[in-house]
Design a protein around this nucleic acid. Sequence first.
RNA 1: GCUGAAUUCGUCUAACGGUUAGGACGGCAGAUUCUCAUUCUGCAAAUAGGGGUUCGAUUCCCCUAUUCAGUACCA
Length: 510
Amino acid sequence: MKKTVRVRFAPSPTGPLHIGGVRTALYNYLFARRHGGTMILRIEDTDSTRYVPGAEEYIFEALRWSGILIDEGVEQGGPHAPYRQSQRREIYLRYAKQLVASNNAYYAFDTPQQLETLRKECEARGESFAYNHAVREKMDNSLSLSPEQVSERIERGDGWVIRFRMPAAEQICMHDLIRGEVTVDSATLDDKVLYKSADNLPTYHLANIVDDHLMEISHVIRGEEWLPSLPLHYMLYKALGWSDTQPEFAHLPLILKPAGQGKLSKRDGDKMGFPVFPLLWQSPEGEVARGYREDGYLPAAFVNMLALLGWNPGTEQELFSMEELIEAFSLERVGKNGARFSPDKARWFNAQYIHHMDDTALGELLVPIVREHGFQVDIALASRIAALIKERATLLGDLWELCRYLFVAPEEYDRATREKYWKGDNPALIADLTVNVLERLESFSTPQIEDAIHHWLEEGGHNMGQVMNTLRLTITGANRSPSLYDICDILGRDETLARIRRALATLGEG
RNA sequence: GCUGAAUUCGUCUAACGGUUAGGACGGCAGAUUCUCAUUCUGCAAAUAGGGGUUCGAUUCCCCUAUUCAGUACCA
């Protein structure tokens, strides 16, 4: 019998979620949906010193924008509520004490300062300090103190911590869905802190294992940075007696920076000119980091791009809707090696999505953009415009510049284009074309305009490129635009002719 | 330093012992077009190094190198 799939995304609200986090959430979501399972969002705020106001809301909004739907969590509740670890504090102490009682953990009174100086001394000797089997009997803890001394110090209010008692020599064999078998010698591990009296909160390790167990998580899908603590987690499940229901693990490869070394960091984006966050982030201190949403990316393109960063379908398909991703996703096809993030590819995905977008859908996005610039446009016209410009856009932010001239007559004319085309016979030809063709047109719409101009071109034996580009200069003010016939059609007879006459008047004879 | 993981075109990756090592992004060159884009076609571009195993290794094993991660009373 296969167990029900229950996965969780468990970020800590210490800042904005970056794209690596979104990808982890996405893989969890795809896996859950693929197997008809449940997607849980748990907030791991067990470090009271690193809490950042607004980070939690940012996480919710980023997931919503990305189309990653949560079944159980802080916002939606569920059978294992609360889903915020700071609201579950009393649960963890119980298990920490249980571990002490079973001799799998112990109280330690060493202060952070004491440990710090110990570390420095070791470093000075070229050694590294580890709080482990080799030294724990000599440290200030319940292993070296009598039970009376321990309870006395706790009662008198000394700061304490509960540490896991890592076995001195045990081969820990683990299984990872992506990496296969991994074995680690427990002698190389240290006695990690599980609970701290300072804020009455567990550390990640304890809280994570306890909650995953209580919430009946079936698969833990998380970043590779957690692989080194997997042995500890295995030992915790064992010590708590939960090995038989322990979840399966899958450690995702890291997302690396586009150039240079290391994993993608918050600073790379600003330095290299691309977002590392899904949404714009404003820190409480007032720092601003750009986001994919504000930079003009479509959520579907963003998700598609992230999905392919570390996973591949095994076919040559690259464009996937969320439904297709759910259908195709499997952990077996997640790669083992870190993936260098490519801003170019992100842009390409977005361009593909805009190009393939339905005219009306893009028109709907265009209406508010045009309004922001002070003009009104109805959905019918916006859709027509969308059809003309969409193949030229990479980001949503490109749209306005691509259709600006449809709303604003040129105030000035591009110098290079003017020098190239506003010379020789061209101005005279435009005047002739205007008077003898455009002004006399019965119906001023694309096919008629096209027919008439072609006729005139052919009769007079004129060069099409010269004439059309000169005409484009007078109407758009520059040398790049979609088909001029469509532009004239949209502008209408009056506006088109007014623009040509104005150019004729202001640009002179050439 | 120690522990672990990883290593195919510049980048993302396919090939689960036998292929002219495939695709995509980016680059370059053409074609199409009234311009710009789009689109299409083509070109250059890779198995980290060394040992094994095998009739045959990108693929399996070992060593080396390199990279990354972890090494907190952070997650």
